[in-house]
Every structure is written in structure tokens, then in C-alpha cells.
Design a protein around this nucleic acid. Structure first.
Lengths: 132, 132
DNA sequence: CTATCTGTTATATGATATTTATAACAGATA
DNA sequence: TATCTGTTATAAATATCATATAACAGATAG
């Protein structure tokens, strides 16, 4: 899995890594049961410290995306990511709130906002070409 | 305008304040040309330091929501908030990206996500009752 | 048995972000 | 002149982010 980090970004790199792994799961590039590189390997691969990777992995574990076995290593949750519950939906709403507020101020129409979301959904859910 | 801060939140309070002012503008509770409390007054009202309010105001100025006059004080941009440009739309897309990714993993359907956005849009754009 | 692989823990350091506290300044205005 | 703006400067406390080294414990491959 290809990881790209922007060290100039104001988004901390442990979060960037987390987002990219989640995106990989969403795109099914990372499948349930699949192994992730060890904290040391991942850290070396992308040129950061192992503790930073460790932080990412633990947050992903906390959210139910992965399992961490002390010796076997890290695997994508074989049962898949836990389904959205009320708490998640509330948290999602709170995250969307300021984005929608600013968009309204800037005259972004509901339709335009919707289209943006749809295009993002498609980016994750569209079938990849496996025929080649 | 009523401001509520959560000091336990991991969202810094200067951002919480920023989001609430933007929400106020979106809801047209704060109208173009309207004054905002001085940094000192606002700080005293909500029980924080004036520099924290100052930081909020400057970020809002940077984004074009407000104007800051050295003596007159702070007013909501009389020309309204600048319209969304390509840069804003890209930034919005980048902000939505991880939210959509996680939602896809958790089985949130596009339709459900859309409904959530619509309900938020309505929260900001619905006409207030001015007949009473 | 030993070397090597896991994640884990501990300790330290440096940089940056957040928030507060005091104080003073400059310009407009009542 | 007193009071109101935002601004600037300095300091300090605290938290977050990221790195660096080192060691530990358990599983496993040779």
C-alpha cells in the first residue's frame, strides 16, 4: 500500500497515516484479515518514527479497524469495521457541522455539496477492474 | 449571540468560537455589517483570554468572514462572505475525504450520508419565524 | 538454544500549539 | 482627558507531536 505524507501539512502525520489506511480499507485495497507492516517496517518504509506508527495503529484499533496481536502483528479486522452506531453518527454530524456552516456562508448550494459527497463515495465504492 | 465552549473537547476553543460565529453567519443570526463584541468584551463574556478571542477574529478575517478596524472594532463582512472558489472547494473535499472513507467502512450508505448533510443544510438555511 | 521477529514500555528531548497573564502602545472618540 | 478600539511584547504553563535510544517479553524460525 502506497503511503504519502505531507510534512508541511497542519494535519499531524499520525492522522494522515490513519486516514490513508482507513481509505485503503474503504477502497478494499486492504481486505479483512490482511496484515499490515510491523510498526518498525512501516516506520522505516515511510521514513518516520516507530512510535508515530504505533500511535496510528492504536487509534485504528480503538476505532475497530484493526486488531493488534502482541506477537503476530497487526491485521485488518477480519470481521470488517464495526458498523456505524448512534455515537458514530453523532460524531460524524459534529464533524460535518462546521463544513456545512462555512459552505452555506460561501454560497455552496446543497446540490453542489451533495455532488461532492457523491463523487467521494464513488471514489471509494466503485468496482475496480479485475478483468485484466 | 450565545456562545458555548467545551473546555474538555479536543477542539481548541479558538476554533470552537470560530465555528460558532461562522454558524451564526450561516444562520443569518449575525448579519453583514453587524458588530461583534470587542476582543475584551467577548473574552470576558465567555470567560477566556482576550488573545484567544483575538486569534479567532484574525482567522475569521483571514477567511473573509469579518473586517477588523483598529478603532471601530470588528464587524461581519458587509459584502457577505466571499463565495467559494476552487481553492475552497478543494479544501472542502479534503476535509470530507476522511469522513466519507470512515463512513464507507462503517457501512453508512450514500443516501444516509446525504440525508445527514441535507438536515444540516436545513438547520442553517431554514427561514426563521419572523411573524410573531 | 539462539537469533529474530512481534508489540510494549520507559525515558528523554525538542519543536510547536494552545491558553493564560500583564502590561503597554496608538489612534479614535465621548 | 478618560475611555474605548485593536495591537504588540513578553512570559509562562501545559499539551501535543515527533523523534531517539534502549530494553523487555513472548512467539517462532533456524
Amino acid at each position: 500500500m502506497y503511503i504519502h505524507l505531507d510534512f508541511e501539512s497542519d494535519t499531524p502525520i499520525y492522522k494522515q497515516l490513519m486516514h490513508q489506511i482507513i481509505a485503503g480499507i474503504a477502497k478494499q485495497e486492504l481486505k479483512p484479515g490482511e496484515s499490515l507492516p510491523s510498526v518498525r517496517t512501516m516506520a522505516a518504509d515511510i521514513g518516520i518514527n516507530l512510535h508515530t506508527v504505533n500511535k496510528t495503529y492504536h487509534q485504528l484499533k480503538e476505532k475497530g479497524f484493526i486488531l493488534i496481536h502482541r506477537q503476530k502483528g497487526v491485521v485488518i479486522n477480519p470481521d470488517g469495521t464495526p458498523k456505524a452506531d448512534e455515537i458514530y453518527m453523532l460524531q460524524l454530524k459534529n464533524a460535518l457541522y462546521p463544513l456545512v456552516a462555512e459552505s452555506v456562508c460561501r454560497g455552496v448550494k446543497e446540490e453542489e455539496f451533495r455532488q461532492l459527497c457523491i463523487s467521494l463515495f464513488q471514489e471509494f465504492t466503485q468496482r475496480k477492474d479485475r478483468s485484466k
